[in-house]
Design a protein around this nucleic acid. Sequence first.
DNA 1: AATGAATGAGAATTCATTCAT
DNA 2: GATGAATGAATTCTCATTCAT
Lengths: 207, 207, 207, 207
Amino acid sequence: MGETRKPIPTLVKDQGLVRLRRGQIIRAAVDLFVEKGFHKTTTREIARATGIGIGTLYEYIQSKEDVLYLVCDFIHTDVEEKLTALLAEQRTGRDTLVHAIRSFFKIMDEMQDYVLLIYQESKSLPDEMLHYVLAKEEVIMRHFEKILERGAKDGSLNIEDGSRKLMAHNITVLGQMWAFRRWFLRRYYTLEQYTERQVSLLLKEMS
Amino acid sequence: MGETRKPIPTLVKDQGLVRLRRGQIIRAAVDLFVEKGFHKTTTREIARATGIGIGTLYEYIQSKEDVLYLVCDFIHTDVEEKLTALLAEQRTGRDTLVHAIRSFFKIMDEMQDYVLLIYQESKSLPDEMLHYVLAKEEVIMRHFEKILERGAKDGSLNIEDGSRKLMAHNITVLGQMWAFRRWFLRRYYTLEQYTERQVSLLLKEMS
Amino acid sequence: MGETRKPIPTLVKDQGLVRLRRGQIIRAAVDLFVEKGFHKTTTREIARATGIGIGTLYEYIQSKEDVLYLVCDFIHTDVEEKLTALLAEQRTGRDTLVHAIRSFFKIMDEMQDYVLLIYQESKSLPDEMLHYVLAKEEVIMRHFEKILERGAKDGSLNIEDGSRKLMAHNITVLGQMWAFRRWFLRRYYTLEQYTERQVSLLLKEMS
Amino acid sequence: MGETRKPIPTLVKDQGLVRLRRGQIIRAAVDLFVEKGFHKTTTREIARATGIGIGTLYEYIQSKEDVLYLVCDFIHTDVEEKLTALLAEQRTGRDTLVHAIRSFFKIMDEMQDYVLLIYQESKSLPDEMLHYVLAKEEVIMRHFEKILERGAKDGSLNIEDGSRKLMAHNITVLGQMWAFRRWFLRRYYTLEQYTERQVSLLLKEMS
DNA sequence: AATGAATGAGAATTCATTCAT
DNA sequence: GATGAATGAATTCTCATTCAT
């Protein structure tokens, strides 16, 4: 597997400092992007919210798109870390899947704004960066794929090989939709209701 | 039920002319938005592609956002019309649903670019316009809801009342995702495969 | 002979207006460039001095370099027109040459600042534009070349073919140097003295 | 005669070190200026090419213009040194002149880029520095003036006093033009041809 | 003496919108 | 109704210079 992250050039040599400042930039930018969207956020606002000068901002990035990429990457990494942590305690087969779905939906709920952000703004990324972001998205899907694979092997999940990708895709998408279509879903379901019904739907297919 | 469309003010009195010119504007703008996105498309480009002067453009709209709204509304209306047409020949119960899903997925496939457009750009609409767009989205979902209702009544679909909204939502979303996540799905499935597997998944829940 | 001028794109359709406004822009810019140089003149200053808004300026040009090109082209055209006018009354042979040199040196004196401008700023032009400017420079040299050719033919000037380009070059350069090195020459010579001595020098070679 | 060089203030006390570092700076900057021009070269680039930090650069100079001055002065000094060396073996009268011209033209050929640099960028110097640079230019002209004077005295050159400055000026300028107008001259003459024809032209005047 | 992170004034350019014709 | 020239606020990004370490 190749590199999973595109390195963004910086004029600053001290790598520790770069990590620190970029962390500050990301935290400031993510809120602004959520609030006003990428296009309506100005670089000056990002700098001000970060607590640094506009000139300093450009010591750590090369273009406004770089900030968007850093933000997208940060969100994906965060999702993945949480997912990985939650899946550390690996039970077997079907149980793992149920557990994973519940966890993932919960994460999607917590990170609503960020999920939305990626869905709506990642199109503004330059091609190459977009590829990296989509690759990360796939990494997340592959978590579910692996669980499905395990379940198929130990006999607790009944799913043919050709449907595995699709099922992993569905799980991911239905989780993200809790965030993306909250304007609709929240009117009729709580997170728990939404989760349990989707779990039931998804498992019925695989019984 | 309230108005289903927000009237956009115009300086021109002749209603026929307004409809004509706006049609031209929409057709020009939709292609530009698909190609470069809403923000990167300029009003000048819209006017040029429409074949009218920039001043004339502003006789028919009041702001660039108006164009985006007209475009979104046009797309939704198109989807709905196609859906309505395809559902005119109403069979009963489960058959109708399967037919509807297949039709809807096909429409989503044909209108890929437009689905994408709405997913990515509707956030740029002013609040009020966004509400109208989301309301239209619901109208589409309600099509499926009604079919589900009919199926429940005639006994051919086994679905409890509380799950109906969710199911309609899932159908809609999974259809849209064929367009939105084509970068992934196309690698593994054809439209037919995707459709049949999703149909099978959705129906198993309701057997 | 190919096109002698590079067309600069404009957003304004009315060709008469374009000529008018560009004339205003050139007149404003040439003074600013003479006074502070190309790099230290801002586009806003050019707009202000022209009496138009910054946005309007960019309706008539595409970049700051365009203004520099327009200015360089204007100066060259001006020199050439003056030269052509002065040479209309064509005497023969050596007389014409003497007359031409005197005229040219006088023009160089009148246009000192502009000659300087071209010598110092034309390097800031994009490659293609620079070629057009150098081509114009050659057109001016060719005026002298032709006179030399005529003189050689009618026997009043003794110059071999291979030296003609060089001689035309020398005349042009020594004229321009009256402007370019005024900081030195003015201390010791008046324009008349400079002219007569150079004429004498140049003619001695060709006797 | 006054000072021939403007002292540039430095924060560093050790004079030897100053000379060393400034030498490095000049060598780095001259190439950059030739390649991209003064304005498009950044101080950061100069520092990097010199192999020192940007902070260190400013220990040895006070402004970017200082670097330009150091570079111009270096070039002039170089020209002068080469000229002086070549003229050490002083023959008499007319021979010396011919020898000097040939040498000078050769130097101009070797230093093409640098001659161009001075012609195009010295205008960016602050007034006072510009005066020093022009003074150096005069020093070079005076070399030729002296030779002409000697030739006049020993009878080998026929030139009246009032023309001496002009003749020295012409020699200098025609030499520099080999560099400055290479885009034209190179098409028709080699350095040797150019030199011999100019020598012949200049000497005819003085026979 | 050396360093390089921080800075912010300033620059070119864009673009939605207006309004006189 | 149609037009398109005029506008200037807004935006991204640069870069010479400083100063604490």
